Simulated scan of single mutants.
Amino acid sequence: MRVIFAGTPEFAQVALAQLQAAGHTIVLVLTQPDRPAGRGMKLQASPVKQHALTHGIPVAQPRSLRLDGKYPEDAVAAQALLQAAQADVMVVVAYGLILPQWVLDVPRQGCLNIHASLLPRWRGAAPIHRAIEAGDAETGVAIMQMDAGLDTGDMLLVESLPIAPDDTTGSLHDKLADLGGRMVVQALAQLDTLVPVHQPAEGITYAHKIEKREAAIAWTQSADTIVRRVRAFNPFPGAATLLAGESLKIWAASVSDATPPASAVYGSIVAVAQNYIAVAAMDSIVNITQVQRPGGKRLAVADFLRGCDLQPGMVFESAPDVPAAR
């Protein structure tokens, strides 16, 4: 098929590569404009753009697709490119722009979206993070026929995937990216025979965009909540806490079976072992196993303790703007 592809991050790049490998012709790629990134804050092309340029695929980076929006000149130029592409279908994966109706109407067989959740649960920008944060037992991928709403279109294919107890957003992202790529290839192969299914009216939740401030650990929350948030915010933005005024990133932790002493304040270190730091939370103890200091590397606790003398009774500070336990 002749495919227009719209996507930006690595999750989308995986699907783009699988579509090419399946023999589809990618006639045009839409992706977000280059953004400053890294320590030098130099402009950096998205993973999708890098892949497209490597494979000689035409790329467009409109700032908007709304003809009546802030950048109408970008939308007009994109409209000409999309219409000239004469595409059979458009595949959209974590693109980052809302598609107006005129875009949905351009491809002969409409626009398909790869969404990393079991819709209608976790519509929106951060479904992988939110599924882990909420303690969901499973997630998955939905291939959706797009409409003008936010992840509200009819579903063509759905496949579930268990969330492992040690899954982080990073590890689950990779599993779902591969699954989504395989499923969209299957959807295109069966597009004429797939039966669209309306999303259920019940069970709708929204995966709001991750804010950096959410990463601050509140030790007044339950140990289970804290550990889920550590996993959900790995690799971005990284769960954070303060110790003696220094910000530390907590990259890995588990819930202990032990109960904190009655005298322990939330966030206090109750034990320092070779491989973990035990910290009192609301109802239990969090065993921290991987830490990072500002400007340093991620370290297993055994390595971290060689350069940081922690003692029971020291207190990790909670951030006041973190929401209460969920």
Rank of each mutant, 00 (worst) to 15 (best):
P9R: 08
A12P: 00
A22R: 11
H24S: 11
T25Y: 02
I26L: 14
L30R: 02
L30M: 00
L30Q: 00
P33G: 08
A37E: 04
G38H: 05
P47K: 06
V48N: 07
A52Q: 05
L53K: 14
I57L: 13
R63F: 01
R66K: 06
P72L: 12
A75G: 00
A77E: 02
V92T: 15
A94F: 12
Y95N: 15
G96Y: 13
I98P: 00
V103M: 12
L112V: 13
H115N: 04
A116F: 15
S117Q: 05
S117D: 09
R121P: 01
G124F: 08
A126P: 11
I128Y: 06
I132A: 01
D136G: 02
V141F: 09
Q145E: 11
M146V: 08
A148Q: 13
A148F: 04
G149R: 05
T152S: 04
L156P: 03
L161I: 01
D167K: 14
D167P: 15
L172A: 12
L172N: 13
H173T: 02
D174G: 10
V185T: 08
H198K: 10
Q199S: 09
I204M: 14
I204C: 10
K209I: 03
K212A: 12
A215M: 00
I217R: 03
S222L: 12
G238A: 14
A239L: 02
A240T: 09
L242C: 10
L243G: 09
A244N: 11
G245P: 07
E246Q: 14
S247P: 01
A252M: 12
A258M: 10
P261W: 04
S263C: 00
V265S: 13
Q274P: 01
A281L: 04
S284M: 03
D303W: 08
F304Y: 15
C308P: 01
D309I: 07
E317V: 03
E317P: 05
E317L: 09
